[in-house]
Design a protein around this nucleic acid. Sequence first.
DNA 1: TATTGCTCGATACACTGTATCGGCAGAGGC
DNA 2: GCCTCTGCCGATACAGTGTATCGAGCAATA
Lengths: 231, 231
Amino acid sequence: MPNDSVIWERPEPPERQVPSPLSRERIVRAAITLADADGLDAVSLRKVAAALDAGPMRLYRYVDTKDELLALMADAVYAEIPAPTGSTPGDVLRSIGRGIRDAALRHEWFADLHGGRPHLGPATLAHAEACHAALHAAGLDDLDARAGAMETLSVYLVGAVRKEVAERRAERASGLDRAQWQHAFGPYLQRMLATGHYPRLSESVHGARHLTASEVFELGLDYLVAGMDPR
Amino acid sequence: MPNDSVIWERPEPPERQVPSPLSRERIVRAAITLADADGLDAVSLRKVAAALDAGPMRLYRYVDTKDELLALMADAVYAEIPAPTGSTPGDVLRSIGRGIRDAALRHEWFADLHGGRPHLGPATLAHAEACHAALHAAGLDDLDARAGAMETLSVYLVGAVRKEVAERRAERASGLDRAQWQHAFGPYLQRMLATGHYPRLSESVHGARHLTASEVFELGLDYLVAGMDPR
DNA sequence: TATTGCTCGATACACTGTATCGGCAGAGGC
DNA sequence: GCCTCTGCCGATACAGTGTATCGAGCAATA
């Protein structure tokens, strides 16, 4: 632990007269621009520094480690998410879910950070606060029920975001759009199912109505919300 | 695409008399041993090769790319998962969930692969087949319902596995065991909540009964399963 | 003005995945 | 038994990575 405090509490170093002034915000913005364009792998300290006309080592004045930069990036995504709305707990939960999903689709690299090492930046905490407040306002008073709802929803969202983004990337990598992929099922999978070793699976793949990613998302959200209802 | 077929269909190169004979299986086993011990980052082609008394380049006879090795590793995990049991669809779904969770806790690195780029190895397909067959046997005949159940469960599991493993790692990294961490809530989080900026959140953190990871897991599973029940 | 202390960035290190290619060993033909 | 040839093995190389170290120079203080 290079500095004995956490990035969220450590003050920024003072600004200095220097060609191309830096700040955590500028650094994070540059990193996010890179990540939006070419994925998380494109975020290296060298490239971020280059985008800011600085030497790589200069960034270490603002951030102790690359993981801290990633944490700041994740927090910046939370800052974009609007406060959830809804008059019933179920609607609030759905609103929370859509807010996170939308943000993740805007910044696909967020999926790689989300659910990993927990970040607890100010925007993340503010988002959590907004969620709890909205649930409370919607009548979900019981603390245990509220915490349980948030925990399980959060689990679901981590998976949803991760899977959907992974699917997008796979489609993009294979150059096929959704419809083509769906129609062909992937030549390989096609062949495997044709072997007859997977009768129930292939029955399902061929027979079931294919759901889009957002349909699956909403479906699971509905299941989860419905299951919480004691009724 | 170096070779124009997929790893699952490409035959292994023939064995040869050579010091320390290789095979995909041996390579994957060595890689899994490394990953179990020190995480996915410890799996480099150089290290895997060294563990097998071979030069790094030799592995490229068996695998075109590191991603393919990772895919084989993920498939090997699926091979360990026992077929789900249960006489109702709900029980089968719970059984599927526990099977995957247990496997992921045995091989934490699996969480880093699970839900990412989709692998469709033979064991993965066999596992999917077993799940569909068990659901069918339990009376979930409707193809759309079955597919929807599997899709949404799978989403949930990706998140559950990822979050739980991340939490374990964070605990391990901070040197605190669960109880200590829970008691202190992390000094930083404690301080943030004490600012009063997050009233509902801190109410929940302090007031709600703290659930263990497996309680959260079961709770979400119950919600999901209950929500699927049309009644 | 002299000194001190901080910051910057060049350099270095250990490591990654993998392309290239020279040489060697085993297999097949005579 | 010998020769050719095919194919694999692994040394080397390359372009990256995160970050430790440290000399040099600048800014602010005494």
